[in-house]
Amino acid sequence: MRNAFIDELVVAAEKNNNIVLVVGDLGYGVVEPFAKRFPKRFFNAGVAEQSMMSLSAGLASEGFHVFVYSIANFPTFRCAEQIRNDVDYHKLPVTIVAVGGGVAYGNLGYSHHAVQDYALIRVMPNMLIAAPGDPMEVRACMRYLTHNPQPSYLRLGKSGERCIHSEVPEVYPGKWLSIREGDQYGDTYLTTGAALEIANQSINDAKLPGWSLNSVPLWSMSTKQAQVSQLERYSSVHTIEDHLMDGGFGSWLLEAAYTRADLLVKIKIKAIDSKVCGLVGKQSTLNVVGGLFDGY
C-alpha cells in the first residue's frame, strides 16, 4: 500500500507543482522517490507533529495540496486540535497519511496501534476518510484526492498487502465498491480499510457463495445520507473493520441509518475488541484475538 501511495503521489506531483510532501521524520524506504524527484517540495518537519500539522495548513492556505506522512497515531491524536482547528475548520487541502492502520504494527505496542483513528477523524465535519482495502484502492483514493484536494485522512496499511481488485476501481465519497456480487437481496460484507482482505478470506474460507462483498474506501460525515439506498439492496450488511467499534465504521453506518428501524436491524458489526489494547503480536494474531477473523 505504501508503495502504491508514493507511486501515485509522484505521478500526480509531476503534473501538479502544488503538491507538497511533509513528513514527521518517518518514511524511510518509502518517501525517497518523491524526495529525490522534488527536493524543493519535500520537507521533514522533524519529530514535531503539532507544528508539522499547523505549518502544513499554512502551506495549504497558500494553494498547496499538502500530504503529511507519518505513522499510526502521530499525525492524528498527537496533533488532533491542529487538524480540527487549522485544517478542518479552514477547509484546507491537507491530506494526512497514516501508515500502520489497525494493528499493522502489532508487535510495536499500543503506541503504534491505530484502532481509534476513525473515531477521531470522523467527528470533524469537513474531513474525508480514505481507507483503501488493497493497493488498487490506494491508487483509486489517491487519484480522487489529487483531483479533489480537501481536508482528508488517508489510512494505509504497511506493505505487502494483496490486490483484491483486478484493476483500479472508480471511487467517490460514500460509494460502495462491489468486489463480488452474490445473491440478489442477499447478505453482504461491507468493509473499509485493510479489513477488505479479512472479509474476502472469510467468504472464501466459509464457502459463502451467495454472499456479496463491498468496500467503502471513501466516507465522511457528509456521506451518511447516501448509505440508505445502498443498505436497502441487501437483507443483511456485515461490517468488518480493524478499529474499535466505538466511533468506528460500523457505528458510522448505524448513525447513517438511525431513522430507519428496518435498516438498523440489518447491520451487524464486527470490530476489534478493546481487549487487544495493550497486547502485542503479529497483525494476523491480534486480528484473531480481537475477534475479526477465525484465523488464517
Partner: peptide, 29 residues
C-alpha cells in the same frame, strides 16, 4: 477568518506561529 482581511482563525494558543511558518515556507518555495 470569515472576516475580510483576517488570514487565520485562532483562539487556541500555539497555532498561529506554526501556521505562519507554513505561509513563510510557501513564499520561499
Amino acid at each position: 477568518h470569515k472576516v475580510p482581511g483576517v488570514e487565520f482563525s485562532t483562539g487556541s494558543l500555539g497555532h498561529g506561529l506554526p501556521f505562519g511558518v507554513g505561509k513563510a515556507l510557501a513564499a520561499n518555495v
